[in-house]
Design a protein around this nucleic acid. Structure first.
Length: 117
RNA sequence: CGAGUCAGCCGGGCAAUCGCUGUUCGUGUCUUUCGGCGCGGACGGAGGAAAGUCCGGGCUCCAUAGAGCAGGGCGCCAGGUAACCCCUGGGGGGCGCGAGCCUACGGCAAGUGCAACAGAAAGCAUACCGCCAGACAGCCGUCUGGUAAGGGUGAAAUGGUGCGGUAAGAGCGCACCGCGCGGCUGGUAACAGUCCGUGGCAAGGUAAACCCCGCCCGGAGCAAGGCCAAAUAGGAAUCCCAUGGUGCGGCUCGCACCGGAUUCGGGUAGGCCGCUACAGGUUCGCGGCGACGCGGGCCGCAGAUGAAUGAUUGCCCUCGACAGAACCCGGCUUACAGGCUGACUCGGCCU
């Protein structure tokens, strides 16, 4: 998925990859112990990402996402991270819409399933 | 009021809305059950350290006649416990005015080893300055011998004080203190007491140095272990077809390879159990100084599996630290914003 992701947006805290799909939108989390050492902070980031995904789920029209937390993302408070994620998802939706106008999405769900977790 | 010691507790609160997960009830649906998937309601949903994984157990599988060796752990005494390197009580030693705190606290007159610098000398040693005697010299001094009281070195120097004694001295002798051994008394014991006897008594320290002595220890871990069980490939058994097909070969002969059906066991993906009810919590009574034990009542208190406790908003306060269960307990250790309670000690002031 990292190599054949169709869409890619990122900032200092997160990297978001996406492949269009059909059916329910799906989310993969990558929050490594290397980037975020403490278990409590790791849980916090995962909750935050899931919450944002849940809020925007209906707009994503079945896309498969992978969100990677970068190093030191846990050093920032929730409101700042929420704003960043919100912005990233906006960018992603923008890219998907402009691409979708040119070419109707033909994703390969099998590939996505194999590599998403 | 100030300073301090010990023990224990709390670890933001409330409300609304939107979510996650488990149990349960109702309901819809799928194929009837089992069960799956929805929807709705109710209830439960991280910690004092969940952490480090440092000890000890339960549980599971494997191994195992017994004993020993190796290796490791522990080490004053008594008790508690499922067990412990833990806890409680007691003893010895050290620190503090004190409440209290700390303590790997068996053995070095079995063996081996180690000790920088200083110092004469640091282990089966010895005399630098001294003191004393004798000889030489005869003003200082030199040599030989005795001695270890005084000085000096050191973390540590072969018991301390006094008197006797002596050339000067020395446990050389004596008294007291200290120490060792034996007895007695108290105590379950460690140990204490010192009434008595006895030895003039030490060539010391270090065993978280090797070692010796005593006691204890089988291994691996819930990804333990067990159950259900696709697809694909391979295996076994039975039955059927039975002399067929393919390749070599000119052909016959011959050689090699290839069938179908059913059942079975192993077993991967996947699912389920293990999985939370217990060395459980709490309260009362009894026993015990206490750790804890016994008995009765009451309570049900997370079970996730890419891994659930959150988000947003509002109000309040002291403005929120360290930090996230993964089979379960008992400990230890470490991290921690801030706050609360009780007992006690020392000092000051007032009555």
């Amino acid at each position: 998925m990292f190599s054949n992701a169709r869409y890619k947006v990122s900032c200092r805290f997160f990297l978001v990859l996406a492949i269009p799909g059909d059916g329910a939108a799906r989310l993969g989390l990558v929050v490594s112990r290397k980037n975020v050492p403490g278990a409590v902070q790791r849980n916090r980031l995962k909750r935050l990402i899931r919450e944002n995904f849940r809020r925007r789920q209906s707009q994503l029209c079945g896309a498969n996402l992978v969100v990677l937390a970068r190093k030191d993302a846990h050093r920032h408070p929730n409101p700042a991270l929420n704003r960043k994620l919100d912005g990233l998802l906006d960018d992603l939706l923008g890219k998907m819409r402009s691409a979708g106008a040119a070419e109707p999405g033909t994703a390969n769900p099998d590939t996505a399933r194999r590599e998403s977790p």
